[in-house]
Design a protein around this nucleic acid. Sequence first.
DNA 1: GGTAGTTCGGGTCGACAGGACCATAACCTT
DNA 2: AAGGTTATGGTCCTGTCGACCCGAACTACC
Lengths: 251, 251
Amino acid sequence: MKTKTGDARAAAGYDPSQYPPFAVTVDVVILTMSEGELHVLLVRRGQAPFEGTWAIPGGFKLPGETLDEAAKRELAEETGVDAASLLTQFGAYGDPGRDPRMNVVTVAYLAVLRDVGAVVAGSDAAEASLVPVSELLNGKLELAFDHMRIVRDAIERVRVELEVSGVATAFVGTTFTLAELRAVYEAVWGVELDGANFRRSVVADEGWVIPTGRLAEPGAAGGKPAELFRAGGAWKHGGPIRRPKRIQKRK
Amino acid sequence: MKTKTGDARAAAGYDPSQYPPFAVTVDVVILTMSEGELHVLLVRRGQAPFEGTWAIPGGFKLPGETLDEAAKRELAEETGVDAASLLTQFGAYGDPGRDPRMNVVTVAYLAVLRDVGAVVAGSDAAEASLVPVSELLNGKLELAFDHMRIVRDAIERVRVELEVSGVATAFVGTTFTLAELRAVYEAVWGVELDGANFRRSVVADEGWVIPTGRLAEPGAAGGKPAELFRAGGAWKHGGPIRRPKRIQKRK
DNA sequence: GGTAGTTCGGGTCGACAGGACCATAACCTT
DNA sequence: AAGGTTATGGTCCTGTCGACCCGAACTACC
C-alpha cells in the first residue's frame, strides 16, 4: 500500500486521542414472564430527544468500570435487582446518527428476571412498564433510537440461549413445578411441548433440576399436585430441551 | 447536537457530551485453514505500547460509518479482501486499562477466509503472519492488549457458528470436495468424522451444497477422484452436521 | 358421597437420526 | 499386475424423541 496511507495510518492508527470521541453506553433488555407471556421492561423517556417515547433502560459507561459492571450497575439502578449472573452481552450498536446529538456506541445486554413487577415500583424511572413482546413485534409500539432493533436481537438471542444453556430457570422462582418451567419454553419459542416428554428430558439431565421433595398446591382447576424442583448448578451442559422445528400439535 | 440541558439529573442521564469520551475501535479476528489446521492472522505492532508484540488487526471507527462498515474497511485495508458477508460481530471489550493511554472500547469481529496467504503480502501491515491457533491456546505466544481473550472468544464463537450456520463453506474455495469441507469441521472442532456419514448428512440437506458435475484431481497418493461441489445458498437452515460430544475413534 | 373434569407423571410404541463398519469403485505408485 | 489410497454407497444397530395412552391425585359440582 502507499506510504502516504501508511504514515497516516501509523499516526492515526495508534494515537487514540487524535480520533473523534464517542460516548459509550450500555443498554439492558430486561425480559420476564408474566401471565404466560414474554414481556420486556420499557421506560418512558422524559427528555429530548424522543421525549415521551418508550425505550429500554440504559446509561453511560464510566471509565473506571468494565462493560459488565456498567450493565450490572444500570440494572441495579433501574430495577434494584442484583442479577449479574444472568447478564449477557449480545451486541454493540454504533450506526451514525443513532443518537442525533453525537456519536454514541452502545453495548447491549440481556437480563432475564422473574417477578419484575414488584421491582419496577422501586425504580427511579419516571414511568416503567412491562410490555408483551408480541405487541412490540407487531410493530404497534415505537421505541426510541434503534432500540427496536436491539430488542428484536435480544429476543432472538434468548431463544437461542434457551436451547444451549439453562437460562430457563432464571425465568421462574427458586422452586418451581415442571409445568412452570415448560411454560417458559413454550412462551419464548411459541410452541407446545408434551408434558410427559418434557419431564423425561429434564430429569434425565443429571444436576439440571433437583427435586425438593415437596409438592405444589394444585390450582383452582384441581389436578394432581406437582412436584417442586429447584434449579441445579449445571448451567453449561447445554439445555435439556431441543427447539422443535415445527410447532407441535396436541389433540 | 448543541443541546444544553439545565437540569443536573437530566444532564447526567441524557447529555452525552457531559461524559468522558471513549475511543471506539474495531478489531478483526481473521481465521483461515492452512495445512489442515486452523490459523489466525496476526500482525506485529510497530509502535508503543506493546511494540513488537503480536496483535490482531484493527483500527478506529469513524463517526460516519457503522460498526460493520468499519470492520469491513479495516479488513480490506489489512488484507485487501472484501468479505462483508462473512463478518460477524461477536463481542465488545471495554475493561478499564485495556489500553494504557486512554479509554478505548473495541468491538470485535470474526472473519473467516480462504487462501489468506496470498492476500497478506498486499497488506500494509509491517509484519503479518498466520499462526496456528494451537500455538496460541498453548500460551506460547503473547498478544497485545486483551487480544488473547478476544481470540479465544472468537474461536469459541466459530465452533458454535459452525454448528448452527453454514460458515464451513467460507473456509474452502468456490468449489470443493467433501473431504475438504469435512477437514474444516475436523480442524475447528478437533474431532474426526466418518467420511461416508458426513456425505450423507451434507447432501441430505437440500440446497446446502450443490454438485457441479465435475471431478477433482486425485492427490499424489491416488484414490478415487472426488466430486466437486459449490456452496448452496442455504445458510440459515442451521448446519448439517452436529458437533459430537466426544471424539470419535476410527479403527 | 359420587362423578366429572383437570393436572401430573409413568409407560409404550414407532419413526428417525446418527455412528460404526463393510464393500466397491476409481485412482495412484512400484 | 499388485497393493495402497481415497471416495462413495450400503447395511446394521442403537439411542433419541415425538405421539399417545393410562392411572394417580386433586377440585368442583351435583
